[in-house]
Nucleic acid binder design. Structure first.
Lengths: 337, 337
DNA sequence: CTGTTAGCGCCTTCAT
DNA sequence: ATGAAGGCGCTAACAG
């Protein structure tokens, strides 16, 4: 079990000081007028010995780790998984690495994960937060840690974030349903929720109700730990009591999945017995029979832009705060309506 | 921007030595006969000041980081995402953290990622490798780094690994197809591939051919970067030239997805025009109309067992090598055949 | 029961 | 153009 090569090893072998080696390897050779030949020797030996600086040592010395923490509700949700890939792709261009943590929609666990990340000297934090307010992160940001939100942003929060046009996209989809003659649309969201993104989607619905355009059904909040059952109850009820054309709008992909599953079990035809439109767009929506209408968020771009914001924050720690990026989600009408 | 609390801070405040604090905080207080009252004082102050040891310092000193590296082809593939969650869940019980890296099925990138992980002093490596032989990892393991494979294991490799009964499960599914009267089954796998797991699936097919039970169609290798087109070409051809009942077996979920997509586009009925059976089992398979036959790998368990093997290796570095765990994948016959 | 000392590998100021 | 020395925060020998 041979030891890894260290700076000292290289220094000894070349009869030079560690300082010199360090300077050259960090690209500061020219600044210090170190001769080209020396530089070359150093670089070659380093290559040859496969020298790689030990991050924990460097991190201890510089206070920087080259690690960005990412916190998502669940990495096995394809939405977050795709965003994570976008982030990783972009960060790795800047030689940064990504620490992925699940919060499992649990506020305590989320804070725990942050603490763990902090212990690893992370340089920044990218978060789709489950918390109900941004205070915790605002405090963190005040200590000098760059924080970037995505997907789940907070109103009146100065921290940079990347989100999509939740309200407008939902409104557009609902309007299309109305035009198709669906009036008593059922709105379902995972809940109980304080999440701004979900509330905006819901607001698009309730605002239309206030305008008298949509029937006055109470929006349903589905406890996702028991989704299948709750959805069955709601839909059974909805279908029994609704005479007009029936349609359900789900605020995320998990619910849509359960609704489709329900239709399959109950042998309901889509869209004749029940029409479906979902916020989020899964790959399978495009090949299901019938194809399912969705709202397609630009997942990779969300990830990349979040990473960009992070890199910006890293470069100018006192730069303009409050950079908010709003991306456009594409409303996709398909056979399910 | 206030500095974090350090051991020295606590020591100063209590007029005790750093050593003492360190001992207590690491639970070695009793071993060193440190008085309960002192221990209590230390623990309370640490709690109070929200002291958290800095991992990079500890790592530098001990050579251990508490980080396990995970390398997968793509974390946005739901199969790997689910396994990653299983691993994370199990590791976190042992206070270990997970570094997730994508190899993108690229051998060079995979090695790069390993190097990066190594720089972070990782304590172990869990890998679904894209390499065509285990040498690289065997060398690594010889330096004392615990390595655990999963999903993609190597024959005649002494390193611990977790896999499923690829051959038997495929054989079972194919036998069921035969019994249903499908004779000229088309076999498709992502390729060109050297992966043992995929080759075992293919071998189950070619062995049946040798026994004369399955027609003698050449197994198809689909270039996944251009899957849709290649699949269309193969299936167009297959369907045109096959008179008997038609069925395709796909060796992974991505191909199955493309085949279903093809059927949708070409308006082919499943299973009357074309039957489908897939290795892997996606959530959507259960709600698609018709439901799709699959082979369900126990993803969470794969993750957990891989994590277990890692934890074992960590505990007894010179323990028995060659621990191989083979889990049973469940063959699920559904409406698509 | 508690403290002193040294050093992990690296970067950085200050000297030369 | 190069080097010496110190220290980041922590732990592990070795002393009392």
């Amino acid at each position: 079990m041979k030891r890894r090569t260290t700076l000292a090893d290289l220094a000894n072998e070349l009869k030079l000081s560690k300082t010199l080696i360090s300077l050259v390897l960090n690209g500061k050779g020219d600044d210090h007028n170190i001769s080209k030949t020396t530089q070359k020797k150093v670089l070659e030996l380093a290559e040859n010995r496969n020298y790689k600086p030990l991050q924990s040592a460097r991190s201890l010395r510089t206070g920087k780790s080259g690690i960005i923490g990412l916190i998502v509700p669940s990495i096995s949700n394809s939405f977050y998984a795709a965003i994570a890939e976008g982030i990783e792709r972009q960060l790795s261009k800047a030689q940064l690495r990504l620490f992925v943590s699940n919060s499992n929609e649990n506020q305590l666990k989320e804070k725990d994960q942050v603490q763990l990340l902090l212990q690893h000297n992370i340089d920044g934090l990218i978060v789709a937060s489950t918390l109900d307010n941004p205070e915790y992160y605002e405090k963190l940001a005040k200590t000098g840690l760059p924080v970037v939100f995505f997907d789940r942003c907070f109103e009146k929060c100065k921290l940079p974030c990347v989100e999509v046009n939740n309200y407008d996209a939902t409104n557009e989809a609902l309007q299309k349903l109305l035009k198709k003659g669906y009036k008593n649309i059922l709105f379902m969201s995972p809940g109980p929720s304080h999440l701004n993104s979900l509330n905006l989607r819901k607001k698009a619905y309730t605002d239309l109700q206030k305008e008298g355009k949509v029937g006055n059904l109470e929006p349903i909040e589905v406890d996702t730990s028991n989704a299948a059952l709750e959805i069955k109850r709601s839909l059974d009820n909805y279908i029994k009591n609704t005479k007009s054309k029936k349609a359900v709008f789900t605020a995320n992909n998990e619910l849509a999945f359960e609704v489709i599953s329900y239709c399959k079990k109950e042998k309901l035809a889509i869209p004749s017995d029940l029409a479906i439109w979902s916020f989020d767009d899964l790959l399978m929506f495009g090949i299901y029979s019938p194809t399912i209408s969705g709202i397609d968020q630009p997942v990779f771009e969300i990830g990349e832009r979040a990473a960009d914001l992070m890199i910006e924050s890293l470069e100018e720690p006192n730069g303009k705060t409050g950079r908010k990026i709003t991306l456009i989600a594409e409303v996709k009408e398909r056979e399910s309506v």
